[in-house]
Amino acid sequence: MPAKLWIGIAVGGGIGASLRYIIIVLIVSEGFPFASLTANLIGCFLLPYILLLPNVDPDVKKMIGTGVIGSFTTFSTFSVESIELLQSGQIFFFFTYFMISLLGGIGLSALSYRWMVMRNRGVQG
């Protein structure tokens, strides 16, 4: 892997982590992980969009996808927050967080993917 790509991914990672921190600061949540849910759902929508952009260098897609979006979203935080909800007895919040993350994430990814496929075929959608 070329050094330029490594550096681009690292810089993208710094950008994504900074954007995630901004969301954490802006969305103060007590008892329910709204900030992580928001970041993860945004990332689920954006990743297919970025990966399916036509005429964009594959290395740029890697820098944005792996660097920015990869550091903006996090499965490990989702996992830890889920365990914390369970351990604190917040079963309803756990299932809500789990289902919105799972169904919302896949749904937004599918929506973005479908939108980009249609767009790339010249269909307005």
Rank of each mutant, 00 (worst) to 15 (best):
F92W: 08
T66P: 01
S79T: 14
G43S: 09
S79A: 10
F72M: 11
G65C: 02
L47P: 11
T96C: 10
N40A: 07
S71T: 15
A110P: 00
C44H: 08
V117R: 12
A17K: 02
I69P: 10
A17V: 09
D59G: 00
I106N: 07
C44W: 06
G122W: 15
I64T: 00
T73I: 10
S109A: 15
G70K: 02
S18Y: 15
S109N: 13
I9H: 09
L53R: 06
S82A: 09
P54I: 09
V56H: 06
G8Y: 04
L53Y: 03
S79F: 03
G13A: 08
F93V: 05
L46N: 01
L108T: 14
A3L: 15
T77M: 04
W115A: 08
S88Q: 11
L26M: 15
Y49I: 01
V80G: 01
I15A: 02
Y97V: 06
I69G: 01
F32S: 12
F45Y: 13
L51C: 08
T38M: 08
G31K: 06
L19Q: 06
Y113R: 13
T38R: 00
T74H: 07
Y21M: 09
V25K: 13
L37R: 00
G105E: 15
L41Y: 05
L26V: 15
I23Y: 02
S112I: 11
L102T: 15
S101I: 09
F45T: 02
I91E: 07
A3E: 01
I22G: 07
T74W: 10
E30F: 04
V28D: 14
A110R: 11
F45D: 02
S82V: 02
V80D: 05
G67N: 06
N55E: 15
C44K: 04
F32K: 08
I69S: 01
V11K: 03
V28A: 13
G105L: 11
Q87L: 08
V123G: 03
S71K: 01
I23Q: 02
S88V: 05
Y21D: 11
S88C: 02
S76F: 07
I83D: 06
G8F: 04
G16T: 05
S88I: 04
I24G: 05
L108E: 14
L19W: 03
V80E: 07
L111P: 01
Q90E: 13
I27T: 12
S36F: 08
I91K: 05
K61A: 00
N40T: 08
F92I: 14
N40W: 06
S109T: 12
K4R: 04
Q90S: 11
Y97P: 11
K4Y: 10
A110M: 13
L51S: 14
G8Q: 01
F72K: 01
A10W: 10
C44S: 13
I27N: 06
F72Q: 07
K4I: 12
L46K: 00
Y113Q: 14
P2V: 00
L102C: 10
P54A: 05
P33R: 06
I7T: 07
G67M: 03
A10S: 14
W6Y: 14
G13K: 07
F94I: 09
F92E: 11
M116I: 12
G43R: 04
T74D: 05
F75R: 03
V28L: 10
